[in-house]
Write a protein that binds this DNA or RNA. Sequence first.
DNA 1: CAATTGGCATACGACACGTATGTGAATAGG
DNA 2: CCTATTCACATACGTGTCGTATGCCAATTG
Lengths: 197, 197
Amino acid sequence: MHKPRKEMIAETRAKLIAAARHAFGTVGYAEASMDDFTASAGLTRGALYHHFGDKKGLLQAVIAEIDGEMALRVNEVASKARTRWQHFVDECTTYIEMALEPEIQRIMFRDGPAVLGDPAHWQNANACVASMTDHLTALQEDGVVVADLDPETAARLINGASSQAAQRIANSKDPEATSKKAIAAFKQLLEGLRRKP
Amino acid sequence: MHKPRKEMIAETRAKLIAAARHAFGTVGYAEASMDDFTASAGLTRGALYHHFGDKKGLLQAVIAEIDGEMALRVNEVASKARTRWQHFVDECTTYIEMALEPEIQRIMFRDGPAVLGDPAHWQNANACVASMTDHLTALQEDGVVVADLDPETAARLINGASSQAAQRIANSKDPEATSKKAIAAFKQLLEGLRRKP
DNA sequence: CAATTGGCATACGACACGTATGTGAATAGG
DNA sequence: CCTATTCACATACGTGTCGTATGCCAATTG
Protein backbone atom coordinates (compact mmCIF):
# COMPACT_ATOMS: atom_id res chain seq x y z
CA MET A 1 0.00 0.00 0.00
CA HIS A 2 2.02 2.89 -1.29
CA LYS A 3 -0.73 5.34 -2.05
CA PRO A 4 -3.82 5.63 0.03
CA ARG A 5 -7.04 4.94 -1.74
CA LYS A 6 -8.40 8.45 -1.47
CA GLU A 7 -5.47 9.76 -3.39
CA MET A 8 -5.85 7.29 -6.19
CA ILE A 9 -9.48 8.20 -6.57
CA ALA A 10 -8.79 11.90 -6.63
CA GLU A 11 -6.11 11.23 -9.18
CA THR A 12 -8.38 9.39 -11.59
CA ARG A 13 -11.00 12.09 -11.19
CA ALA A 14 -8.39 14.69 -12.05
CA LYS A 15 -7.14 12.66 -14.98
CA LEU A 16 -10.64 12.33 -16.38
CA ILE A 17 -11.34 16.03 -15.98
CA ALA A 18 -8.05 16.95 -17.61
CA ALA A 19 -8.59 14.62 -20.55
CA ALA A 20 -12.16 15.76 -21.05
CA ARG A 21 -11.16 19.39 -20.75
CA HIS A 22 -8.61 18.97 -23.47
CA ALA A 23 -11.00 17.10 -25.75
CA PHE A 24 -13.90 19.49 -25.18
CA GLY A 25 -11.65 22.47 -25.68
CA THR A 26 -10.20 21.28 -28.96
CA VAL A 27 -12.72 19.19 -30.89
CA GLY A 28 -15.76 20.32 -28.91
CA TYR A 29 -18.21 18.56 -26.66
CA ALA A 30 -20.32 16.86 -29.32
CA GLU A 31 -17.35 15.53 -31.27
CA ALA A 32 -15.45 14.36 -28.23
CA SER A 33 -15.73 10.60 -27.98
CA MET A 34 -15.88 9.32 -24.45
CA ASP A 35 -14.09 6.15 -25.46
CA ASP A 36 -11.28 8.18 -26.98
CA PHE A 37 -10.54 10.66 -24.24
CA THR A 38 -10.99 8.24 -21.37
CA ALA A 39 -8.52 5.96 -23.15
CA SER A 40 -6.11 8.87 -23.50
CA ALA A 41 -6.23 9.11 -19.72
CA GLY A 42 -5.49 5.40 -19.43
CA LEU A 43 -9.05 4.64 -18.32
CA THR A 44 -12.39 3.55 -19.75
CA ARG A 45 -15.88 4.93 -19.74
CA GLY A 46 -16.57 2.79 -16.72
CA ALA A 47 -14.61 5.18 -14.55
CA LEU A 48 -16.36 8.13 -16.12
CA TYR A 49 -19.86 6.86 -15.42
CA HIS A 50 -18.86 5.86 -11.94
CA HIS A 51 -17.60 9.31 -10.99
CA PHE A 52 -19.67 11.71 -13.05
CA GLY A 53 -22.86 9.92 -13.98
CA ASP A 54 -22.75 10.84 -17.63
CA LYS A 55 -21.10 13.04 -20.20
CA LYS A 56 -22.95 16.13 -19.03
CA GLY A 57 -21.83 15.54 -15.47
CA LEU A 58 -18.25 15.51 -16.61
CA LEU A 59 -18.79 18.74 -18.52
CA GLN A 60 -20.13 20.30 -15.34
CA ALA A 61 -17.01 19.28 -13.48
CA VAL A 62 -14.79 20.71 -16.21
CA ILE A 63 -16.73 23.96 -16.16
CA ALA A 64 -16.51 24.26 -12.41
CA GLU A 65 -12.76 23.87 -12.63
CA ILE A 66 -12.34 26.47 -15.34
CA ASP A 67 -14.67 28.88 -13.59
CA GLY A 68 -12.58 28.68 -10.46
CA GLU A 69 -9.41 29.40 -12.38
CA MET A 70 -10.98 32.33 -14.16
CA ALA A 71 -12.17 33.91 -10.96
CA LEU A 72 -8.68 33.61 -9.50
CA ARG A 73 -7.08 35.23 -12.50
CA VAL A 74 -9.57 38.05 -12.68
CA ASN A 75 -9.16 38.99 -9.06
CA GLU A 76 -5.41 38.73 -9.23
CA VAL A 77 -5.08 41.14 -12.12
CA ALA A 78 -7.79 43.57 -11.19
CA SER A 79 -6.84 43.98 -7.55
CA LYS A 80 -3.92 46.16 -8.60
CA ALA A 81 -6.06 49.01 -9.83
CA ARG A 82 -6.15 52.24 -7.89
CA THR A 83 -9.78 53.29 -8.09
CA ARG A 84 -12.74 51.04 -7.68
CA TRP A 85 -14.05 51.97 -11.10
CA GLN A 86 -10.72 51.17 -12.66
CA HIS A 87 -10.71 47.92 -10.79
CA PHE A 88 -14.07 47.10 -12.31
CA VAL A 89 -12.98 48.03 -15.81
CA ASP A 90 -9.83 45.97 -15.48
CA GLU A 91 -11.89 43.07 -14.30
CA CYS A 92 -14.02 43.28 -17.42
CA THR A 93 -11.15 43.58 -19.85
CA THR A 94 -9.32 40.73 -18.18
CA TYR A 95 -12.45 38.73 -18.65
CA ILE A 96 -12.36 39.51 -22.35
CA GLU A 97 -8.74 38.52 -22.57
CA MET A 98 -9.44 35.19 -20.97
CA ALA A 99 -12.34 34.64 -23.30
CA LEU A 100 -9.85 34.83 -26.13
CA GLU A 101 -8.43 31.48 -25.21
CA PRO A 102 -10.02 28.86 -27.44
CA GLU A 103 -10.56 26.42 -24.62
CA ILE A 104 -12.46 28.91 -22.51
CA GLN A 105 -14.42 30.24 -25.42
CA ARG A 106 -15.47 26.86 -26.59
CA ILE A 107 -16.32 25.30 -23.26
CA MET A 108 -17.63 28.23 -21.26
CA PHE A 109 -19.34 30.29 -23.95
CA ARG A 110 -20.43 27.87 -26.62
CA ASP A 111 -20.77 24.23 -25.76
CA GLY A 112 -21.49 24.87 -22.10
CA PRO A 113 -24.61 26.96 -22.63
CA ALA A 114 -25.77 24.74 -25.47
CA VAL A 115 -25.53 21.57 -23.40
CA LEU A 116 -26.31 22.78 -19.89
CA GLY A 117 -28.52 25.77 -20.58
CA ASP A 118 -28.42 29.26 -19.18
CA PRO A 119 -25.10 29.84 -17.36
CA ALA A 120 -26.96 31.90 -14.81
CA HIS A 121 -28.36 28.66 -13.45
CA TRP A 122 -25.11 26.75 -13.27
CA GLN A 123 -24.18 25.68 -9.80
CA ASN A 124 -20.50 25.87 -8.82
CA ALA A 125 -19.72 28.14 -11.73
CA ASN A 126 -20.58 31.74 -11.16
CA ALA A 127 -17.55 33.10 -9.43
CA CYS A 128 -16.71 35.67 -12.08
CA VAL A 129 -20.16 37.13 -12.35
CA ALA A 130 -20.49 37.15 -8.59
CA SER A 131 -17.33 39.18 -8.31
CA MET A 132 -18.46 41.67 -10.92
CA THR A 133 -21.81 41.97 -9.22
CA ASP A 134 -20.15 42.77 -5.92
CA HIS A 135 -18.05 45.48 -7.46
CA LEU A 136 -21.01 47.04 -9.18
CA THR A 137 -22.87 47.12 -5.91
CA ALA A 138 -19.96 48.82 -4.20
CA LEU A 139 -19.67 51.32 -7.02
CA GLN A 140 -23.31 52.18 -6.63
CA GLU A 141 -22.79 52.85 -2.95
CA ASP A 142 -19.86 55.06 -3.83
CA GLY A 143 -22.09 56.99 -6.16
CA VAL A 144 -19.95 56.23 -9.18
CA VAL A 145 -22.52 54.10 -10.93
CA VAL A 146 -26.13 55.08 -11.48
CA ALA A 147 -28.36 53.97 -8.65
CA ASP A 148 -31.33 52.48 -10.43
CA LEU A 149 -29.59 49.47 -11.82
CA ASP A 150 -29.74 45.86 -10.77
CA PRO A 151 -26.10 44.86 -10.29
CA GLU A 152 -26.39 41.22 -11.23
CA THR A 153 -28.43 41.99 -14.30
CA ALA A 154 -25.87 44.52 -15.42
CA ALA A 155 -23.06 42.06 -14.75
CA ARG A 156 -24.74 39.48 -16.95
CA LEU A 157 -25.26 41.91 -19.80
CA ILE A 158 -21.65 42.95 -19.61
CA ASN A 159 -20.75 39.32 -19.65
CA GLY A 160 -22.66 38.83 -22.86
CA ALA A 161 -20.99 41.78 -24.49
CA SER A 162 -17.60 40.53 -23.32
CA SER A 163 -17.99 37.16 -24.86
CA GLN A 164 -19.04 38.71 -28.14
CA ALA A 165 -16.04 40.98 -28.03
CA ALA A 166 -13.79 38.04 -27.41
CA GLN A 167 -15.29 36.01 -30.24
CA ARG A 168 -14.88 38.90 -32.59
CA ILE A 169 -11.24 39.30 -31.71
CA ALA A 170 -10.49 35.61 -31.75
CA ASN A 171 -12.00 35.02 -35.18
CA SER A 172 -10.57 38.12 -36.73
CA LYS A 173 -7.97 38.16 -39.45
CA ASP A 174 -6.21 41.03 -37.76
CA PRO A 175 -6.59 40.37 -34.04
CA GLU A 176 -4.51 43.38 -33.06
CA ALA A 177 -6.71 45.87 -34.82
CA THR A 178 -9.93 44.11 -33.93
CA SER A 179 -8.91 43.96 -30.31
CA LYS A 180 -8.46 47.71 -30.18
CA LYS A 181 -11.83 48.34 -31.75
CA ALA A 182 -13.64 45.81 -29.62
CA ILE A 183 -12.18 46.96 -26.32
CA ALA A 184 -12.81 50.59 -27.21
CA ALA A 185 -16.44 49.85 -28.03
CA PHE A 186 -16.76 47.84 -24.87
CA LYS A 187 -15.39 50.58 -22.64
CA GLN A 188 -17.70 53.00 -24.34
CA LEU A 189 -20.65 50.87 -23.35
CA LEU A 190 -19.43 50.73 -19.77
CA GLU A 191 -19.41 54.51 -19.68
CA GLY A 192 -23.17 54.31 -19.85
CA LEU A 193 -23.24 52.96 -16.33
CA ARG A 194 -21.45 55.93 -14.75
CA ARG A 195 -23.34 58.71 -13.14
CA LYS A 196 -23.02 62.02 -14.87
CA PRO A 197 -21.58 64.84 -12.80
CA MET B 1 -49.75 16.73 -64.23
CA HIS B 2 -51.51 18.88 -61.68
CA LYS B 3 -48.56 20.41 -59.87
CA PRO B 4 -45.39 21.29 -61.67
CA ARG B 5 -42.32 19.64 -60.40
CA LYS B 6 -40.68 22.82 -59.13
CA GLU B 7 -43.55 23.41 -56.80
CA MET B 8 -43.41 19.95 -55.31
CA ILE B 9 -39.73 20.34 -54.62
CA ALA B 10 -40.14 23.70 -52.97
CA GLU B 11 -42.91 22.20 -50.91
CA THR B 12 -40.84 19.33 -49.56
CA ARG B 13 -38.01 21.71 -48.79
CA ALA B 14 -40.42 23.89 -46.88
CA LYS B 15 -41.87 20.91 -45.05
CA LEU B 16 -38.44 19.73 -44.01
CA ILE B 17 -37.43 23.17 -42.80
CA ALA B 18 -40.66 23.56 -40.86
CA ALA B 19 -40.35 20.16 -39.21
CA ALA B 20 -36.70 20.69 -38.34
CA ARG B 21 -37.41 24.16 -37.04
CA HIS B 22 -40.02 22.81 -34.70
CA ALA B 23 -37.83 19.97 -33.50
CA PHE B 24 -34.74 22.14 -33.06
CA GLY B 25 -36.78 24.79 -31.28
CA THR B 26 -38.34 22.41 -28.79
CA VAL B 27 -36.03 19.49 -28.02
CA GLY B 28 -32.88 21.13 -29.37
CA TYR B 29 -30.52 20.32 -32.20
CA ALA B 30 -28.62 17.48 -30.57
CA GLU B 31 -31.70 15.67 -29.32
CA ALA B 32 -33.65 16.05 -32.54
CA SER B 33 -33.65 12.74 -34.37
CA MET B 34 -33.55 13.11 -38.13
CA ASP B 35 -35.61 9.96 -38.54
CA ASP B 36 -38.27 11.38 -36.24
CA PHE B 37 -38.79 14.84 -37.62
CA THR B 38 -38.48 13.87 -41.26
CA ALA B 39 -41.15 11.25 -40.59
CA SER B 40 -43.33 13.90 -38.96
CA ALA B 41 -43.12 15.74 -42.28
CA GLY B 42 -44.14 12.59 -44.11
CA LEU B 43 -40.65 12.08 -45.50
CA THR B 44 -37.43 10.24 -44.75
CA ARG B 45 -33.83 11.20 -44.25
CA GLY B 46 -33.27 10.51 -47.93
CA ALA B 47 -35.00 13.76 -48.80
CA LEU B 48 -33.06 15.61 -46.16
CA TYR B 49 -29.67 14.48 -47.40
CA HIS B 50 -30.68 15.17 -50.97
CA HIS B 51 -31.65 18.77 -50.30
CA PHE B 52 -29.42 19.89 -47.46
CA GLY B 53 -26.40 17.63 -47.48
CA ASP B 54 -26.51 16.90 -43.77
CA LYS B 55 -28.00 17.91 -40.46
CA LYS B 56 -25.90 21.05 -40.24
CA GLY B 57 -27.01 22.12 -43.69
CA LEU B 58 -30.60 21.90 -42.60
CA LEU B 59 -29.83 23.93 -39.50
CA GLN B 60 -28.33 26.61 -41.72
CA ALA B 61 -31.49 26.72 -43.78
CA VAL B 62 -33.62 27.01 -40.66
CA ILE B 63 -31.43 29.80 -39.34
CA ALA B 64 -31.58 31.71 -42.61
CA GLU B 65 -35.35 31.56 -42.51
CA ILE B 66 -35.60 32.77 -38.92
CA ASP B 67 -33.06 35.51 -39.51
CA GLY B 68 -35.11 36.84 -42.38
CA GLU B 69 -38.23 36.91 -40.28
CA MET B 70 -36.47 38.66 -37.44
CA ALA B 71 -35.12 41.36 -39.69
CA LEU B 72 -38.59 41.98 -41.06
CA ARG B 73 -40.12 42.29 -37.63
CA VAL B 74 -37.40 44.54 -36.31
CA ASN B 75 -37.68 46.97 -39.18
CA GLU B 76 -41.43 46.99 -39.05
CA VAL B 77 -41.61 47.92 -35.39
CA ALA B 78 -38.71 50.30 -35.25
CA SER B 79 -39.57 52.32 -38.32
CA LYS B 80 -42.32 54.07 -36.40
CA ALA B 81 -39.96 55.91 -34.08
CA ARG B 82 -39.60 59.67 -34.44
CA THR B 83 -35.90 60.23 -33.90
CA ARG B 84 -33.10 58.12 -35.28
CA TRP B 85 -31.79 57.41 -31.83
CA GLN B 86 -35.21 56.29 -30.70
CA HIS B 87 -35.43 54.17 -33.80
CA PHE B 88 -32.19 52.52 -32.83
CA VAL B 89 -33.25 51.92 -29.25
CA ASP B 90 -36.56 50.47 -30.39
CA GLU B 91 -34.70 48.20 -32.72
CA CYS B 92 -32.63 46.88 -29.86
CA THR B 93 -35.52 46.33 -27.49
CA THR B 94 -37.54 44.63 -30.21
CA TYR B 95 -34.58 42.39 -30.68
CA ILE B 96 -34.67 41.51 -26.99
CA GLU B 97 -38.38 40.80 -27.16
CA MET B 98 -37.90 38.43 -30.05
CA ALA B 99 -35.09 36.72 -28.23
CA LEU B 100 -37.60 35.86 -25.55
CA GLU B 101 -39.27 33.34 -27.79
CA PRO B 102 -37.90 29.90 -26.93
CA GLU B 103 -37.52 28.86 -30.54
CA ILE B 104 -35.40 31.87 -31.42
CA GLN B 105 -33.40 31.67 -28.25
CA ARG B 106 -32.63 28.04 -28.65
CA ILE B 107 -31.85 28.00 -32.35
CA MET B 108 -30.28 31.40 -32.91
CA PHE B 109 -28.46 31.95 -29.65
CA ARG B 110 -27.62 28.54 -28.29
CA ASP B 111 -27.54 25.61 -30.66
CA GLY B 112 -26.72 27.71 -33.70
CA PRO B 113 -23.45 29.13 -32.37
CA ALA B 114 -22.51 25.81 -30.78
CA VAL B 115 -22.95 23.87 -34.01
CA LEU B 116 -22.05 26.40 -36.68
CA GLY B 117 -19.61 28.63 -34.82
CA ASP B 118 -19.41 32.39 -34.57
CA PRO B 119 -22.64 33.95 -35.88
CA ALA B 120 -20.60 36.75 -37.35
CA HIS B 121 -19.44 34.31 -39.99
CA TRP B 122 -22.83 32.92 -40.91
CA GLN B 123 -23.77 33.53 -44.49
CA ASN B 124 -27.42 34.36 -45.22
CA ALA B 125 -28.07 35.25 -41.62
CA ASN B 126 -26.89 38.66 -40.61
CA ALA B 127 -29.79 40.86 -41.52
CA CYS B 128 -30.46 42.11 -38.01
CA VAL B 129 -26.91 43.03 -37.20
CA ALA B 130 -26.52 44.63 -40.60
CA SER B 131 -29.50 46.83 -39.92
CA MET B 132 -28.22 47.87 -36.50
CA THR B 133 -24.83 48.58 -37.99
CA ASP B 134 -26.37 50.87 -40.59
CA HIS B 135 -28.27 52.80 -37.99
CA LEU B 136 -25.21 53.23 -35.82
CA THR B 137 -23.30 54.55 -38.78
CA ALA B 138 -26.03 57.05 -39.55
CA LEU B 139 -26.17 58.12 -35.91
CA GLN B 140 -22.47 58.75 -35.97
CA GLU B 141 -22.85 60.98 -39.00
CA ASP B 142 -25.62 62.83 -37.21
CA GLY B 143 -23.27 63.40 -34.32
CA VAL B 144 -25.52 61.58 -31.88
CA VAL B 145 -23.17 58.70 -31.24
CA VAL B 146 -19.51 59.06 -30.38
CA ALA B 147 -17.33 59.09 -33.47
CA ASP B 148 -14.51 56.75 -32.55
CA LEU B 149 -16.53 53.58 -32.56
CA ASP B 150 -16.65 50.77 -35.06
CA PRO B 151 -20.33 50.37 -35.86
CA GLU B 152 -20.37 46.67 -36.57
CA THR B 153 -18.32 45.89 -33.50
CA ALA B 154 -20.69 47.89 -31.37
CA ALA B 155 -23.67 46.19 -32.97
CA ARG B 156 -22.24 42.79 -32.12
CA LEU B 157 -21.58 43.72 -28.50
CA ILE B 158 -25.10 45.02 -28.17
CA ASN B 159 -26.29 41.81 -29.68
CA GLY B 160 -24.48 39.84 -27.03
CA ALA B 161 -25.93 41.94 -24.25
CA SER B 162 -29.39 41.59 -25.78
CA SER B 163 -29.31 37.86 -25.85
CA GLN B 164 -28.21 37.77 -22.22
CA ALA B 165 -31.01 40.12 -21.29
CA ALA B 166 -33.49 37.90 -23.07
CA GLN B 167 -32.18 34.75 -21.42
CA ARG B 168 -32.41 36.38 -18.06
CA ILE B 169 -35.98 37.41 -18.60
CA ALA B 170 -37.02 34.12 -20.14
CA ASN B 171 -35.63 32.01 -17.32
CA SER B 172 -36.84 34.26 -14.57
CA LYS B 173 -39.49 33.35 -12.05
CA ASP B 174 -40.98 36.82 -12.31
CA PRO B 175 -40.57 37.76 -15.97
CA GLU B 176 -42.38 41.07 -15.53
CA ALA B 177 -40.03 42.38 -12.91
CA THR B 178 -36.95 40.91 -14.52
CA SER B 179 -37.90 42.41 -17.83
CA LYS B 180 -38.05 45.87 -16.35
CA LYS B 181 -34.67 45.49 -14.71
CA ALA B 182 -33.02 43.98 -17.76
CA ILE B 183 -34.32 46.54 -20.22
CA ALA B 184 -33.41 49.37 -17.87
CA ALA B 185 -29.88 48.07 -17.52
CA PHE B 186 -29.67 47.57 -21.24
CA LYS B 187 -30.76 51.10 -22.05
CA GLN B 188 -28.29 52.37 -19.52
CA LEU B 189 -25.51 50.62 -21.37
CA LEU B 190 -26.68 52.13 -24.64
CA GLU B 191 -26.39 55.57 -23.13
CA GLY B 192 -22.66 55.03 -23.11
CA LEU B 193 -22.64 55.31 -26.87
CA ARG B 194 -24.14 58.80 -27.00
CA ARG B 195 -22.03 61.86 -27.27
CA LYS B 196 -22.15 64.12 -24.28
CA PRO B 197 -23.38 67.63 -24.90
C1' DC C 1 -8.08 -13.67 8.33
C1' DA C 2 -12.80 -13.40 6.39
C1' DA C 3 -16.25 -10.41 4.65
C1' DT C 4 -17.64 -6.54 2.29
C1' DT C 5 -17.32 -2.42 0.01
C1' DG C 6 -16.61 0.10 -4.11
C1' DG C 7 -13.54 1.66 -7.95
C1' DC C 8 -13.16 0.52 -12.44
C1' DA C 9 -13.36 -2.62 -16.68
C1' DT C 10 -15.95 -5.45 -19.84
C1' DA C 11 -19.98 -6.79 -22.46
C1' DC C 12 -24.26 -5.79 -24.43
C1' DG C 13 -28.22 -3.40 -26.64
C1' DA C 14 -30.21 0.71 -28.68
C1' DC C 15 -30.14 4.50 -31.42
C1' DA C 16 -28.51 8.02 -34.68
C1' DC C 17 -25.79 9.33 -38.30
C1' DG C 18 -23.88 9.07 -43.19
C1' DT C 19 -23.48 6.50 -47.53
C1' DA C 20 -24.50 3.55 -51.14
C1' DT C 21 -28.00 1.89 -53.81
C1' DG C 22 -32.65 1.33 -55.67
C1' DT C 23 -37.19 2.98 -57.76
C1' DG C 24 -40.66 5.35 -59.95
C1' DA C 25 -42.37 9.50 -61.89
C1' DA C 26 -41.59 13.72 -64.53
C1' DT C 27 -39.12 15.73 -68.23
C1' DA C 28 -36.68 15.86 -72.74
C1' DG C 29 -35.76 14.26 -77.42
C1' DG C 30 -36.76 12.01 -81.69
C1' DC D 1 -46.26 9.17 -79.01
C1' DC D 2 -42.86 6.53 -77.34
C1' DT D 3 -38.32 5.90 -75.35
C1' DA D 4 -34.46 7.44 -72.69
C1' DT D 5 -32.77 9.95 -69.02
C1' DT D 6 -32.83 12.62 -65.12
C1' DC D 7 -33.64 13.29 -60.43
C1' DA D 8 -36.42 13.48 -56.13
C1' DC D 9 -36.83 10.58 -52.62
C1' DA D 10 -36.92 5.91 -50.18
C1' DT D 11 -34.59 1.80 -48.53
C1' DA D 12 -30.78 -0.86 -46.71
C1' DC D 13 -26.52 -1.22 -44.54
C1' DG D 14 -22.29 -0.30 -41.81
C1' DT D 15 -20.17 2.33 -38.19
C1' DG D 16 -19.65 4.80 -34.10
C1' DT D 17 -21.39 6.46 -29.67
C1' DC D 18 -23.99 6.45 -25.74
C1' DG D 19 -26.01 4.31 -21.34
C1' DT D 20 -26.67 0.14 -18.51
C1' DA D 21 -25.91 -4.20 -16.56
C1' DT D 22 -22.61 -7.10 -14.98
C1' DG D 23 -18.16 -8.85 -13.33
C1' DC D 24 -13.66 -8.62 -11.08
C1' DC D 25 -10.06 -7.41 -8.04
C1' DA D 26 -7.92 -4.60 -4.52
C1' DA D 27 -8.45 -2.11 -0.39
C1' DT D 28 -10.77 -1.45 3.81
C1' DT D 29 -13.21 -3.11 8.03
C1' DG D 30 -14.20 -6.07 11.87
